[in-house]
Design a protein around this nucleic acid. Structure first.
Length: 281
DNA sequence: GTATTTGTTGTTGC
DNA sequence: TGCAACAACAAATA
């Protein structure tokens, strides 16, 4: 499920519960796969007794920083979370007992912070040290940053000239955080058919695409993750019915702008939804 | 039983 | 070499 804005929603959910809290205990369940390179024992040892400091979301990843109690030279522990296809972060009461797909549980005085992921495409990464780890710093510059220029998008599309634009929008090295539904939303708003070859886009279309990348990210962030300290009750609580989002999976779904039928087919290896009336090949 | 899933990575082939 | 396509990963749901 989680793309750019959903990831920020989950980060905020944990961050609000963790604010000022100390980790009393750490549970790591099953699934060595989820923890890949990281050593579960090292994670448990480093986080137990540590205090939550801050967190960030970038693309589809999150970084949670903790300060360890006995400050040696390496006082900071960084916990990285990628939610994969089906991961989520939840905040449960202290009496909560971990279920089958809960892989990581951090217990504070007030809550249990749970990372669960049934399909196990997600991952947990870990790093001790005051400088951010490579797996964090190598993430491409955000779409909502000055570095995401129309020139950069144009150049990238040229390099991927023979791939359908839908597939290219899913490439994290240039469109960090964009996933299947956001890609469809962007193309629908930009009125570009998902099967158009990237190299065939005219300069004006590249500019529209670039602009809609920014708009969809901004709107998604505000509506899904909320502004300031506000956190919506659930992920979709405030997404307007005028977005493609609500209609792309509906049987007999219709374009919310034109009322015309939507089309669905696999493109770039993913199920893709578009509005034939507005998005032409 | 079949087909589907909002992600990433490694491999293969052009 | 660089790029594009595809299988694989795992489990729930319809």
């Amino acid at each position: 499920m989680p793309e750019f804005a959903e990831v920020e929603f989950f980060r905020k959910r944990w961050a609000q519960a963790a604010a000022g809290q100390r980790v009393k205990s750490v549970e790591l369940h099953s699934a060595a796969k989820i923890f890949r390179g990281a050593n579960p024992t090292a994670i448990r040892r480093a986080l137990t007794g540590a205090t939550y400091v801050s967190s960030e979301a970038q693309a589809k990843q999150m970084l949670f920083r903790f300060r360890r109690p006995s400050p040696g030279r390496k006082a900071t522990a960084c916990l990285g979370v990628h939610l994969g296809m089906s991961g989520e972060l939840r905040v449960e009461p202290t009496g909560y007992v971990a279920l089958r797909h809960d892989h990581l549980v951090l217990t504070t005085t007030k809550h249990r912070l749970v990372f669960s992921d049934p399909r196990m495409f997600g991952r947990v990464q870990f790093h001790v040290g005051d400088t951010a780890p490579t797996w964090w710093t190598k993430i491409a510059p955000p779409i909502l940053s000055p570095e995401f220029t129309v020139e950069a998008v144009g150049a990238f599309l040229k390099r991927r000239a023979r791939a359908p634009i839908k597939a290219v929008l899913l490439m994290q090295e240039r469109f960090p955080g964009v996933g299947n539904w956001m890609a469809d939303e962007i193309l629908w708003r930009a009125a570009i058919h998902p099967r158009r070859l990237s190299g065939s886009l005219q300069p004006a279309e590249v500019k529209t695409l670039w602009r809609e990348c920014g708009r969809v990210c901004r709107l998604a962030l505000d509506t899904i993750a909320g502004r300031g300290s506000y956190l919506p009750p659930d992920l979709n609580a405030h997404i307007p019915k005028t977005w493609l989002f609500w209609h792309r999976w509906e049987a007999g779904g219709r374009d919310p702008r034109t009322g015309t039928p939507l089309a669905r087919a696999e493109t770039g290896g993913r199920t893709t939804c578009w509005s034939p009336a507005r998005q032409k090949l």
